[in-house]
């Protein structure tokens, strides 16, 4: 399993707010620090929701236009069913509770695990300006608000990789 060019650092960009996008970034970030790999997580565009205080622990998944979504039993979720009010909230909370049973923590707790392992959490400055967020809107433990140039500067180094989820 050992490789001659081990990964030393991962720089993970999360640009979307859906459960599957946010958790992909969180699992990969936490998995990195658990292996002793340095991790920087950069949240931009809709992905910012994952580090906005009053939104972070309530991610949704799309119930319309999501061909991977299936009903209990395995049938595909019909698009017309998805438009029923409350369907997205219900489906999302079902998904989160299934994940909780597998010991997958809520977003804020997951971010705390990453921070405990020395991982860093950043917000994108441009997206902050776009959505009119201020630093006060962000989770208290966010390490900073970065421009794309600053992100590239800290992503450098041998064995460093950029991952866009």
């Amino acid at each position: 399993m050992e490789s001659n060019n081990p990964i030393k650092k991962v720089n993970i960009i999360c640009a979307k707010a859906a459960i599957e996008d946010v958790y992909a970034a969180l699992v990969m970030g936490n998995g990195a620090v658990m292996e002793g790999i340095e991790a920087n997580l950069f949240f931009t565009f809709f992905g910012l929701d994952a580090i906005v205080k009053n939104r972070m622990d309530k991610p949704h998944t799309a119930v319309v236009g999501n061909p991977g979504l299936r009903l209990p039993g395995g049938l595909r979720m019909p698009t017309l069913l998805g438009v029923i009010p409350g369907m997205e909230a219900m489906t999302s909370s079902m998904m989160l509770s299934t994940m909780e049973k597998l010991d997958i923590p809520p977003v804020s707790e997951f971010l705390e695990l990453i921070k405990a392992g020395g991982g860093k959490i950043y917000a994108c400055k441009l997206a902050m300006d776009m959505f009119k967020f201020t630093k006060e809107d962000l989770w208290d433990e966010v390490d900073g608000v970065l421009t794309v140039g600053e992100f590239y500067a800290l992503a450098g180094g041998e064995g460093s990789h950029i991952i866009f989820t």
Binding site: M34, E35, G36, E112, L113, K115, A116, G117, G118
Partner: peptide
């Protein structure tokens, strides 16, 4: 807590 765990077993603590 997890933070102390990382300090006690630096690098890949659970492993």
């Amino acid at each position: 807590d997890v933070k102390t765990f990382y300090q006690l077993f630096p690098g890949a603590p659970l492993k």
